[in-house]
């Protein structure tokens, strides 16, 4: 697709309108699920960029937590504006990814995954022991203001939801456009053949570094939104390793075919988790793990591949010329 207004554009636009309208009708707990989906979906979007390049991070909770704590700390110095907070969280993680990227761009496969894990656990180890930042209890995050106005009660979540939905919409479009750009196409080049990429005149390491920074920015954004939505940041629910596992979980659940799929996958993840937790608190992890296993075994390309199966059935599959 070369046109800017392609299927994904319309899909995302319709999605935005639907959830903006729904926002005013939803009950607060559903709205909260929506917020969490957008936050985790953004991180999974970052992982999608890496995944397409053949790289998987087992430690993106690092950037998620870093962005979340950046918001919490920026409030301590008096920055209460939501947009400003989100920008600070996003940039903070982007900078961290830029710095670590100089190292990580040299690693592939399991080493890349585990080095990310190590860095995320370092941050966890620091945060869990740092008294100033509340150790394992974490720190509270106040309701933010929006250009000088601080909404109260239910309006607080409604506003945050609208606000986040609009930013996520823009971010998703940007990522979609990025993936169809020359730089985005290098994800495939990195995954398939680094030697050829080098001999086409571009550095595979540089391409990976750029992707890593993008994924860091997205994870930081997700963390910032999560901090504002939950009103609290702490190491165990944001930085500890199972969080990183959850992000990869969403990426697999969604499939890496389309940016819109990532948010649908994130929503599915949050819904399964919430319902499992509410209705079967004894076995919610069993249900989560079971779902993931079913996906891995029977839908290796994620939920999105269901739409492709349907699409293929409509058009009879063209046979390759050979």
């Amino acid at each position: 697709m070369t046109r800017f207004m392609d299927k994904t554009f319309w899909g995302l636009t319709i999605g935005l309108v639907v959830i903006l309208v729904a926002n005013f009708l939803l009950e607060d707990w559903l709205r909260f699920i929506g917020l969490q989906s957008m936050a985790r979906g953004a991180v999974a979007l970052g992982l999608l960029i890496l995944w397409r390049a053949g790289l998987v991070s087992f430690g993106h909770a690092l950037f998620f937590g870093w962005g979340a704590y950046a918001v919490a700390l920026s409030q301590k110095i008096g920055i209460t504006d939501a947009l400003l907070g989100i920008i600070i969280g996003t940039i903070a993680s982007g900078l961290l990814a830029f710095a670590l990227g100089f190292l990580l761009r040299r690693y592939r496969a399991i080493f890349f995954a585990l080095l990310n894990l190590a860095f995320s656990m370092i941050l966890y180890g620091v945060l869990a022991k740092l008294e100033v930042l509340g150790s394992t209890d974490g720190i509270g995050v106040k309701q933010p203001s929006y250009f000088g106005i601080t909404p109260e009660g239910a309006n607080a979540h409604i506003t945050l939801f609208c606000f986040t939905a609009i930013i996520v919409y823009i971010v998703a479009l940007a990522v979609h456009r990025y993936l169809s750009s020359t730089l985005g196409a290098m994800t495939i080049a990195v995954r398939e053949n680094e030697i050829r990429l080098e001999y086409l005149g571009y550095s595979a390491e540089k391409a990976i570094h750029v992707k890593y920074v993008f994924s860091g920015l997205l994870a930081g954004f997700g963390g910032a939104v999560m901090a504002l939505a939950v009103g609290h940041v702490d190491p165990d629910s944001m930085v500890y390793w199972p969080n990183s596992g959850d992000f990869v979980f969403i990426t697999i659940l969604s499939g890496t075919g389309n940016v819109a799929a990532t948010f649908i996958g994130a929503l599915a993840f949050e819904l399964i988790r919430t319902f499992a937790f509410d209705y079967a608190p004894q076995i919610w992890q069993l249900l989560m793990g079971g779902t993931l296993l079913v996906i891995v075994m029977f839908l290796p390309n994620g939920l999105w591949s269901l739409t492709e199966h349907l699409g293929k059935r409509r058009k009879s599959a063209p046979s390759p010329a050979e």
Binding site: S180, S181, T182, M186, A189, L197, L200, Y202
Partner: peptide, 20 residues
């Protein structure tokens, strides 16, 4: 196309759509 895109683009032009 990927080969051409990489050969023809530098800096911000890398962010333009590949399939022009």
């Amino acid at each position: 196309m990927i080969a051409m895109g990489i050969a023809e683009s530098r800096g911000p032009a890398l962010l333009a759509p590949l399939f022009a």
